[in-house]
């Protein structure tokens, strides 16, 4: 039975964006929308434009054409710091940890205000990522890869965060840590909408509800994650995975 169409307006609506990095026309018409309460996964081969899409949403690249709307508000001409203040968090591919700062200071930089609510959220974060409490005073650069990834994902959550863009969280992590990470992201689904760029199909399929397929800087296909898991042809064509 097909799922009921969501009644809510999409939280993020990306329409036909084009983006250039230098002279290279990386995005050539990316459109997708993200519904509240879901994890949307962006899939595709290396260089298909997934990371560039996240960077464009975050305002780190400005699109040459197209629109990006966050809760009806156009954000494609805003600066990254303005976009962040709207409640969009970003976890880049290299995690963007401040290695020379302590875990505490990393959170401090992430906080937009410091008040009672922040402390409350901090408790939630500790609940999801207990390791971070343990290493609160440690220098972030000395954390393990998995802990760094958790720190990177947890940082935006100290603010009123409504949309979290995570770029390849599984990169360079051991399978057991990936399982751990899947648990954590599953828990934070309650608090924020997630857009996930992921190469690891196991992780993508265990977290995602909607997916969009990217190829050559375009969105070429989308649907429910369950469909994709069964559609061998599609997986082979765009992702090069079989079985």
């Amino acid at each position: 039975m097909a799922e009921v169409e969501p009644v809510d307006e999409p939280i993020l609506k990306v329409e036909r964006i084009h983006s250039l990095i230098g002279k290279h026309h990386v995005l050539q018409g990316v459109s997708f929308q993200v519904d509240p309460g879901k994890v949307t996964v962006l899939l595709g081969r290396n260089g298909a434009g997934k990371s560039t899409t996240l960077r464009t949403i975050m305002g780190l690249l400005s699109p040459s054409q197209g629109t990006i709307r966050f809760k009806e508000q156009a954000i494609h001409h805003m600066k990254p710091y303005e976009i962040s203040r709207l409640g969009i968090g970003f976890v880049p591919e290299d995690r963007g940890i401040f290695n020379l700062l302590t875990v505490e200071e990393n959170f401090r930089v992430a906080m937009h205000q410091e008040n009672g609510k922040t402390r409350e959220r901090m408790e939630t974060v500790f609940h999801i990522f207990p390791d971070l409490k343990k290493f609160w005073k440690a220098t972030a650069g000395n954390l393990s890869g998995g802990q760094k990834q958790m720190l990177a994902i947890a940082r935006p959550l100290v603010n009123r965060n409504e949309l979290l863009l995570i770029d390849e969280p599984s990169k360079g992590l051991a399978p057991i840590i990936i399982d751990h990470l899947i648990d954590s992201i599953n828990k934070l689904k309650e608090f924020t909408v997630v857009i996930l760029v992921e190469q690891n199909f196991y992780m993508a399929s265990s977290l995602g509800s909607d997916f969009y397929l990217f190829d050559d800087g375009r969105t070429v296909h989308h649907g429910q994650m369950e469909e994709l898991v069964q559609n061998e042809e599609l997986k082979k064509k765009y992702l090069g995975i079989s079985g």
């Binding site: 990254p80 710091y81 962040s84």
Partner: peptide, 24 residues
């Protein structure tokens, strides 16, 4: 101070400081 922390963070990775909502 928070200001100092942000500056130190910016020394390491200015782009990430922007993404965290600070006008670098």
């Amino acid at each position: 101070t928070k200001l100092g922390t942000i500056v130190r963070a910016g020394v390491e990775n200015p782009e990430m400081v922007q993404v965290m909502g600070h006008n670098i």
